[in-house]
């Protein structure tokens, strides 16, 4: 029989600990497919965040280090500057990247570090039990915004892709969604492009992925996917915000 679908080689057989429906599994797969596609698993080092995906080192067949909460871009900078032959990617949640690690991501991007950052936007702090994140939508109830996020007291949800795209140091910035197959295929293309940028030594690449957290949204998977479409995408528009050509640098 002809095999038409298989697990990427960059992922191992470990059973993932993520909740049913969680977006991390799909996002992992896209990264793994990129490692397979460019045949770079053997020279890639991943930087795991503090968040639900801290355990990603259990699932990938590439070397992985755990960074303190929010510091993944700094750790990735230290690695890439010391061993420019390695492919270095950071994988971060929205609490990790957009809150505690905001300085690290902005400055790594601004320096144009030749690294790839995959940013998981699920509008909550998953690991700690669903508290408000910088990306939590207005009106969204979380365990620390029990009456709904209020801009008077909590500010507005941060759009990271739009924040990083204007920085001169970034070369590829996109926001994609993992809500349905057609969008997942687009996201896949984006993740591939982001790694390609690094392989071509073009500079800092960033892909934001809108994902679901059914557990902390208090919804089932189907309702969660609908929430991405009805609430998240209108506030976090999808698209490629910036794409420089290799030629721009030569």
């Amino acid at each position: 029989m002809k095999q038409v679908f298989a697990k990427p080689k960059a992922l191992n057989d470990e059973i993932m600990h993520y909740c049913p429906g969680c977006g991390h599994g799909v996002a992992h797969r896209l990264v793994a497919e990129a490692l397979d596609h460019y045949d770079i698993t053997g020279r890639t080092v991943g930087v795991a965040p503090v968040g639900c995906s801290v355990l990603m080192y259990d699932y990938f067949n590439c070397d992985i280090i755990e960074a303190p909460h929010g510091r993944a871009p700094a750790v990735a900078t230290g690695m890439k500057r010391s061993r420019s032959d390695l492919i270095v990617f950071a994988y971060q949640g929205d609490g990790d990247l957009a809150s505690i690690g905001l300085a690290e991501i902005v400055h790594a991007a601004n320096r144009g570090e030749n690294i790839t950052v995959i940013f998981i936007n699920n509008t909550v702090y998953g690991m700690t039990g669903g508290q408000m994140a910088p990306t939590t939508l207005l009106g969204q109830k979380t365990t620390t915004s029990p009456y709904g996020r209020n801009f008077n007291t909590d500010g507005y949800p941060i759009r990271m892709a739009e924040m990083l795209a204007p920085l001169e140091g970034t070369t590829y910035v996109a926001r994609m969604s993992l809500d349905k197959p057609v969008n997942i295929l687009k996201a896949r293309k984006s993740v591939f492009k982001a790694f390609e940028m690094q392989i071509n030594n073009v500079g800092f690449s960033f892909v934001e992925l809108l994902t679901i957290c059914p557990t902390n949204w208090g919804m089932d998977s189907m309702e969660s996917i609908k929430r991405i479409q009805d609430e998240m995408i209108p506030y976090f528009p999808l698209g490629v915000f910036k794409e420089k050509e290799t030629e721009d640098y030569i």
Partner: peptide, 9 residues
Amino acid sequence: NMVLGASAV
């Protein structure tokens, strides 16, 4: 943390 990354490689 940059030192941490450099040390790791």
